[in-house]
C-alpha cells in the first residue's frame, strides 16, 4: 500500500515538474495554478505514503536510504508549500519541483526493504533527531535554491544583458529575503537536531559522545558555515551575492554530510 502511494506521489511530482517547466517558458498564470494544485496533491500522497510506511514498519520511517531521501524530498515539498502561504517567490516552484523530483528518483532507486530496527536505535530520539535534522536540511535546500536564483538574476543585472531569466526570476530583494527566512528557520532547527543527536549519542556511548568520524566533522563544518553567515548578516549586514554564494556552498556541505550519514548505514556511528 505504502509503495503504491509512493509511486503515485512520484508520478504526481513528475507531472508537477513538467507543468512548472512549461509555465517557466510560457509564463501563463493558468498553468501555474494547475501546477500548484498538482504539487499539493503530490505532497499529500507522499504524506500518506510516509504514514502508511510508519504503520507497516512500526517505527519512524527515516532509517534506510530510501526512507531518508524520500523524507527529505517530502520536507522540501512541504516547506515550499508552507512558504506559499507567507509570501510568493515568483517561479521558485519550477526549481523546487525539479529538485524534489530528482530526490524521489534517487529514493526510488534505493532498496525499499523494511529493515528491522537495531536495538540501540529504539529510542524516542530517533524521530526527533532525524526528522528535525531533515526538515532543517529542507529549509537550507530552499535557501540554496533561492541563492542559486539570486546569483542568476544578479548576473543578468550586473552584466546588463537581459536574457531568458531576467523577466522570469523574482527581484533580488525577494530572493535575499527568502534566503534570510529559510536560514533563520533552518539554522535553529539544524542546531536543535544536532543537539538531539548529541543527547542520543550520550545515551548510547555514555561519556564519550564525540567521535571523530567524517560525518560529525562535516556536520560541524556545515554548522559553522551557517553560524558564520547568520552572524555576518546580523552584525555587518552581509547580504546579496556574498550571502547567496555562502548559502550554496554551505548546502553542498549539507549534502556531503547527508551522504556520509547515508553511507554510514542506518545507525551512523561507524
Amino acid at each position: 500500500m505504502s509503495y503504491l502511494l509512493f509511486q503515485a506521489g512520484f508520478a504526481a511530482y513528475f507531472v508537477t515538474a513538467v507543468i512548472y517547466t512549461v509555465f517557466f517558458f510560457s509564463q501563463k498564470n493558468k498553468i501555474r495554478n494547475v501546477a500548484r494544485i498538482i504539487f499539493i496533491v503530490a505532497a499529500s500522497l507522499h504524506t500518506l505514503n510516509i504514514i502508511f510506511r510508519y504503520i507497516e514498519a512500526g517505527h519512524t520511517p527515516i532509517t534506510s536510504i530510501h526512507e531518508t531521501i524520500s523524507f527529505f524530498a517530502w520536507s522540501i515539498a512541504c516547506c515550499h508549500l508552507s512558504f506559499r502561504w507567507r509570501y510568493t517567490v515568483k517561479n521558485s516552484g519550477t526549481f523546487t519541483s525539479i529538485i524534489v523530483l530528482l530526490l524521489m528518483l534517487a529514493s526510488s532507486l534505493a532498496s525499499r526493504e523494511l529493515l528491522p530496527l537495531p536495538p540501540e536505535m529504539r529510542s524516542w530520539l530517533l524521530p526527533v533527531h532525524a526528522s528535525i535534522s531533515i526538515i532543517a536540511d529542507a529549509f537550507l535546500a530552499l535557501a540554496a535554491i533561492g541563492g542559486g536564483m539570486y546569483l542568476l538574476q544578479e548576473r543578468e543585472l550586473k552584466q546588463k544583458r537581459f536574457g531568458f531569466f531576467f523577466s522570469r526570476l523574482p527581484s533580488l530583494d525577494t530572493l535575499d529575503k527568502l534566503n534570510q527566512h529559510c536560514i533563520s528557520i533552518g539554522f535553529p532547527l539544524m542546531t536543535l537536531g544536532m543537539f538531539a543527536g548529541y543527547i542520543w549519542a550520550r545515551q548510547i556511548w555514555g561519556g564519550r559522545p564525540w567521535q571523530w568520524n567524517p560525518k560529525v566533522v562535516c556536520a560541524m563544518i556545515t554548522w559553522l558555515f551557517y553560524a558564520g553567515l547568520m552572524h555576518q548578516r546580523f552584525t555587518l549586514g552581509w547580504r546579496g551575492r556574498r550571502a547567496a554564494w555562502i548559502t550554496v556552498i554551505a548546502f553542498c556541505a549539507v549534502l556531503l554530510t547527508f551522504w556520509f550519514v547515508l553511507s554510514g548505514g542506518a545507525i551512523h556511528a561507524t
Partner: peptide, 9 residues
C-alpha cells in the same frame, strides 16, 4: 522596471 527587479517593491 529595473528598480523593481532590484528592490522588489
Amino acid at each position: 522596471e529595473l528598480g523593481r527587479k532590484i528592490f522588489g517593491d
